Computed example of a mutant assay.
Amino acid sequence: MVSIGYTMMCEQSPPNLLVRDIQRAEDAGFDFSVISDHFNPWLEEQGHSGYAWSILGAASQVTSRIPLMTYVTCPLVRYHPAVVAQKAATMQILSGGRFRLGLGAGENLNEHVVGEGWPAVGQRHEMLDEAVEIIQLLFSGEQVSHRGTYYRVESAKLYDLPDERVPIGVACSGQESCTIAGGRADLMIATEPKAELGELFDAAGGAGKPRVGQMPIAYDVSREAAVKRAHEQFRWTGLGWPVNSELPTPAAFASASASVRPEDIAEQVACGPDVDQVVEKAKAYVDAGFTELALVQIGADQQEAFCIWAEKELLPALRSL
């Protein structure tokens, strides 16, 4: 049976509402949760982008059961990997062992803000590999000094380590990232239901490890309203990762997605109150070998209604897969 998760989407809701929403998701019976870690929203219409790690700390204190996870944090430019390791260890303690650290090679949208430029994709994967190595060394509790190709660490040690080591997931989109994930990570992360990603992950050493996917939906009693909202806030989603990782600003995403029509989004995203439509799209992830699937409910003002619907109708249907 696939586990079904809830996404705290920092780009579409203010921090205080995200904390309230994760309480609702836990009460509704979601199996786990994830949170985006952005500096900017994808589009101005989304309108928010709170600091994910503060939100996680608050979420850990108002929930008691639901697991928490970054989806994903980029430890390359905006954050140094040593700082990411400290944040993750602290979150594991605060949450009582409910935290997983999702890592990825990031997007220009969020990383360029510190003025260090945006490396080419091959270099980003080299940086990610080195960053994961540093984080794992710090999780060991030893004092770490590291002089690598991209990062330096001078006599660093995590003095507050959790009893349970933080599991690490790595986002996969192709051969290079799957190789890093299979060789270094405890789980695979992806946003597309591609079986070949799992095959590459297996070949690099990931066989038998969990695979976590993510899928946007737009619940509303009115399908027309759901399509309108999905188009307004998520029309960027079909641009593809090679585009999404390179664009620098919400204005650039608006320009790149200007020709996307509401009917285009309605084909990609399950919109409205039809449970069967969501199940059909989720089945693609299950068929591709994913063991966990986090849902993104599009629209800050629909989270309460979504959680009620999910508890009564959607979650039982998805768990039948």
Rank of each mutant, 00 (worst) to 15 (best):
L158F: 15
D264L: 11
P167K: 00
E154P: 01
W53H: 09
E107S: 05
Q136C: 03
E246A: 14
E313P: 01
T63H: 05
I298G: 14
P262W: 10
P15F: 12
I217Q: 03
G240H: 08
A207Q: 08
G104A: 04
G97L: 01
G102C: 01
Q277W: 04
D264C: 09
V34P: 12
G182N: 02
A305I: 01
E199R: 09
V121N: 12
A190M: 03
S33H: 13
G117S: 05
W118Q: 11
R98N: 06
L137H: 06
R20N: 13
G115W: 14
L295Q: 12
Q12Y: 13
R229C: 11
F201I: 01
I189E: 02
L314T: 07
Y159S: 15
F234G: 12
F253D: 08
A252T: 10
V286L: 00
I168Y: 03
L200N: 04
A317D: 05
A52G: 10
N244K: 05
P248E: 10
K283S: 03
L295N: 03
A254C: 08
T7Y: 06
V296G: 09
H48W: 15
N108K: 09
M127D: 12
Q23E: 13
W241F: 06
E164M: 07
T90Q: 15
V221T: 05
A256R: 11
G183E: 07
E224W: 08
S95V: 00
T63R: 01
G102L: 00
Q46C: 14
H80C: 02
P14Y: 08
C178R: 02
E224N: 13
G206F: 05
L197A: 04
G29K: 09
D220M: 07
A190I: 03
N110G: 07
E45C: 09
